[in-house]
Amino acid sequence: MSEESADDGGYATRATIEVIGLRKRFGSQVALDGMTFAVRPGRVTGFVGPNGAGKSTTMRVILGLDAAEEGEALVGGVPYRGLRRPLRHLGALLDASALQPGRTARNHLLWLARSQGLPAGRVDEVVELAGLGPAARRKAGGFSLGMRQRLGIAAALLGDPPVVMLDEPFNGLDPDGIVWMRGVLATLARQGRAVLVSSHLMGELEGTADHLVVIGRGRVVADTGVAELLAAASGGRVVLRTSASAQAARVLRDAGAAVVATGPDTLGVTGLPDERIVALLARDGVPFSQVSAHRATLEEAYMELTRDAVEYRGVPAGEVTR
């Protein structure tokens, strides 16, 4: 095992999570239904789906907390429970509130460090990394959710793991905290680590995730790059801002475009590229102030994707909850 040779660029071989055909049910409810995906190094993989889609269950199975009935989850090619000092392989933040309230943040990190054979000095390092500062000497029971998330990040980074897995890390963070968390995720990915971040709000991952695993009802709905997904969802729509919207609409419809009014002086145009629209308006002397290609939000893309998935599967969108 090469666990002692972690350095820059040394993550690649171990920085993976492979989830292969996981199945699990709670009673009669199917929680995981053939869940299969992989997390690659050097990028942030968003793990997205509605509440109850199986995100947390999948993460628990990866960590060996829950047993799957079928399939397996590998961290760097090895089942989690086979790892000697697992926090040196995978740092996870599942529930930031899972703390003994009477223990200080620093002591919480200290026992974790002891369990991995890490020196106490490493605790001070991650306290700094997570920006806990002097709060580390206070009892964790008095922490705000934002502080708990920072403590959770500190714990996840304790073993300098090549794989980092965070469940809903943006929950409870204030705007400063969200900016900080995005920075952390980007940095971790840039360092070559594999980063898996779950969220039930696609918007949170906008500008953060490089890759998306979208799940619903215990299985993967889409496993795609963010750029491709947005391009597909944007669908060549152009936004036109003009004070003469009626005239503009007539001109463009005559040229074969579909035009809808999206505001008092904005039109959504599909069927014509933006440079052709500019040319047509200029030819007829229609005034306009802006022509721009519409960029779909990740949220929109996600809605479209999950709607398709639900229609395709033809079942109501009731969700498995635990």
């Binding site: 369990s115 490493r122 700094e128 980074l157 300098d160 400063d176 980007a186």
Partner: peptide
């Protein structure tokens, strides 16, 4: 606010050291 997460190799220990003794130290610390 720091996002400087330059990785630092954990202190190397002999593999045999871990195991039960590390768990015991963790639980004692708890």
């Amino acid at each position: 606010m720091t996002t400087d997460l330059t990785p630092r190799p954990p202190a190397t220990r002999r593999a045999g050291r871990g195991g039960f003794l590390a768990t015991l130290r963790a639980e004692w610390t708890k």
